[in-house]
Every structure is written in C-alpha cells, then in structure tokens.
Simulated assay, not measured.
Amino acid sequence: MSDAKQPILSVRDLKVEFQIKDTKAWPWTPTRSLKAVNGISFDLFAGETLGVVGESGCGKSTLARALLNLNPANSGSIRWMGQEMQGSTDAAWLSVRKDIQMIFQDPLASLDPRMTVAQIIAEPLRTHHPELSHDEVMAQVRTIMGRVGLTAQQINRYPHEFSGGQCQRIGIARALILQPKLIVCDEPVSALDVSIQAQIINLLKELQAEFGLALIFIAHDLAVVRHISHRIMVMYLGRAMEVAGKHALYDDPRHPYTQALLSAIPIPDPDLERGKVIQLLQGDLPSPLNPPSGCVFRTRCPKAQAQCADAVPELRTTTTPGSQAACLLTCTLSPGTTVKTCDTANGSTAPSAS
C-alpha cells in the first residue's frame, strides 16, 4: 500500500438515480425514483485495495459503473488525480479511461464471442494508441497473456473455447494492457469455482504488487474481501454503513449490519462453528423504491430506537482507529474533539469524556 498523501480517486456524495415506471400502471402515472447509490463518499490511494461488500441490490455494481461513467451519476463529485470528472464530456472521460479499467462479473458475457483472444486484448491498445504497429501490439498482447497465465498458443482461439477462469484471465489481460492506475473489479470471482477464485485473487494481488495498481474490489463474500483488501466499505440500500481497515472491521465491527454479516461467515474450526451465534436479521430487504425513513437499516436492526426513524446517520469516525460508521447508536468522536457520543443503557445518546 502506498504512502502517498493525496488520493488518486476522491468521491464525494455520489448519487445515481433511475426513473422507474410501472408497466401495468396508467400511461399518465408518474415515474418513481430509485436511488441506487445515495451519497457515497470515499478516497482511494495508489496501491490500495478498497473492498465493497453488501447484499445483492445494495448498489455495488451501480457504484462501480458510475465511477467509469458507464452509468452517469446524477450528482456528487468524482475527482481523478485532482481532475473533476463528474459532468465531464465524453472526450474528457476518454482521456482518463486508459488509466481506469474494469473487470466484469460474468467473464464469458463480457467478451465478444466473434473476436479472438488477440483481438479482445488488443482492442484497448488500438483505441488509445493507434500509432502502434501490428507487430508492436501483438508483442504487448503476448507479454500480458503470459503474465496472467495464458499461453501464446491460445492467442487465436475464441472465448467459448476457454473455461470460466481462463475467460476471467482474458478480461484481466484486457484491463492490464494499457497499464492503468486503477482497476474496478465488479465481483470478478463470483461466477467461478472456489479453487479458481483463489487463483484469480492471488493473481490480482501479484499484479497489484508488480504494477502498483489500486483496486476497487466488489464482492458479497466477506472472506474473499478480507483476503485482498486494505480497507472495506459496507453498503446497504445505496448507502455506506461502515468504512474501516480490514483488521478494525473484522475484529471490532461497529455497525449492527456489519456485525450481522460477519456473524454469518463460516469458521474452519468445527468446535467454534458449532458454538457460534449467527445474528439473524428480521424481515425482508426493503424496496429501494420506498426505503425506510431515517436510517435505511432500522427496519431490520436489532438495536433500532425511535430516533432512528427521524435522522439519516452520516458516516462519523468511531472510537476504533481508522473506522467510520453511520449509526446513531455507535460510539463516535465529535469532529475535531476528543469527546465521544455513545448510546446509554436505555438507548438514548449522551456525551462522555474520551
């Protein structure tokens, strides 16, 4: 992880909304707004991996696509290397696209079935570096194929001739061919067998160390995210519930949602696994078209109080170093002070000396 002081990517209050119309409603029925990403903020530094976890439908993939302008954000700020990209033109995005690449969730569906491996991996080079000759492009393609574990004999094959793990290696090679500074990985191992997952994750870690890559690694498997990430952001219904270093998050989770997620991780020791208590969440995931007022997690939270329905909790620094949580009932440090705010025995908040 780099010691750089300035983040290469800085996101502030990012919001992505979709207008949804009920196909069974009357034609004049107004559309409803679905807030897929609702006020996400984070910084990412060179050589760092930020893991993003949460249930299906929480906005992880929408966030990933918004960072590359594949799903344009409605508001907020996306600063890349100090340059504001939110609302920029397609030409401005094209100029930075070579530095930000993406690995997609479905390895086979993300590859054009009519193109050979050589054509797929070379396409970014031909787009961003048209001055390169055919021989120069092919030389770089062969080099990067060898680095991700593909052989030169496979260069003229088509995607359907490869396994899922090999297709994902092709996707990684395509993302690496431009030598980017950041790769956004949208659940890159969820469609693969466990043994292949380990190979791909280890490959990404090796490539990160070799090329100094920054990674945004999106997954729903907390064990996988722990293995590869430096920091982790937990999302729920489009909002960030907790952001912390991996050791702080796994050893001392501060948000009730994070605590419930971690309690469900299997333990390799059979004796410990039998004695483990899983925190079951009550109810179903609310509809993102009609999220709860106040804290979006309150309808399933075992610690919810009446005040949770009134105020939307913002991410605040907790008493655990390097941790932020969006919970009214979690000990937090007041900005610029050493005074912490904690829940009392009856659930109300009260200040206390740190």
Score class of each variant (00 low, 15 high):
Asp186Pro: 12
Ile183Glu: 02
Gln179Lys: 07
Ala175Arg: 00
Glu187Ile: 13
Arg174Ser: 00
Ser195Asp: 13
Gln199Ile: 08
Asn202Glu: 07
Ile172Glu: 05
Asp186Ser: 06
Leu178Asp: 01
Val189Gly: 13
Leu203Arg: 06
Gln197Thr: 08
Lys181Glu: 05
Ala198Asp: 12
Val189Trp: 15
Leu203Asp: 09
Pro188His: 11
Gln199Ser: 08
Pro180Met: 04
Ser190Ile: 14
Ile200Arg: 11
Asp186Tyr: 15
Leu203Asn: 14
Ala173Val: 04
Val194His: 10
Val184Lys: 08
Ile183Phe: 08
Val194Glu: 11
Gln179Gly: 02
Lys181Ser: 03
Ala175Phe: 01
Asp186His: 09
Pro188Ala: 09
Asp186Lys: 07
Val189Tyr: 11
Ala198Phe: 14
Ile170Trp: 04
Pro188Asp: 13
Asp186Ala: 09
Ile196Tyr: 10
Gly171His: 05
Val189Cys: 15
Asn202Lys: 06
Ile170Arg: 00
Lys181Arg: 14
Asn202Thr: 11
Ala175Asn: 00
Lys181Phe: 02
Val194Phe: 13
Leu178Thr: 11
Ala175Leu: 00
Ile196Phe: 14
Pro180Thr: 02
Asp193Pro: 10
Gln199Leu: 10
Gln197Met: 08
Cys185His: 01
Arg174His: 07
Leu178Pro: 04
Asp193His: 11
Ile201Pro: 11
Pro180Cys: 03
Val189Arg: 04
Ala173Phe: 06
Ile183Leu: 03
Gln199Met: 10
Leu182Gly: 00
Glu187Trp: 07
Gly171Val: 08
Asn202Gln: 12
Ile172Arg: 02
Asn202Trp: 10
Asp193Lys: 05
Asn202Leu: 12
Ile201Trp: 07
Ala173Gln: 01
Leu192Thr: 10
Cys185Asn: 01
Arg174Leu: 04
Ser190Trp: 14
Gly171Ala: 09
Ile196Gly: 04
Asn202Ala: 10
Leu176Gln: 01
Gln199Pro: 13
Val194Asn: 09
Ala173Asp: 03
Ile196Asn: 07
Asp186Gly: 05
Gln179Arg: 06
Leu176Ser: 01
Ser195Phe: 13
Asp193Tyr: 07
Ile183Tyr: 05
Gln199Thr: 10
Gln197Ser: 05
Val194Asp: 11
Ser195Leu: 13
Ala198Met: 13
Pro188Met: 07
Ile177Phe: 06
Gln179Pro: 03
Pro180Trp: 02
Pro180Asn: 05
Leu203Trp: 15
Val189Thr: 15
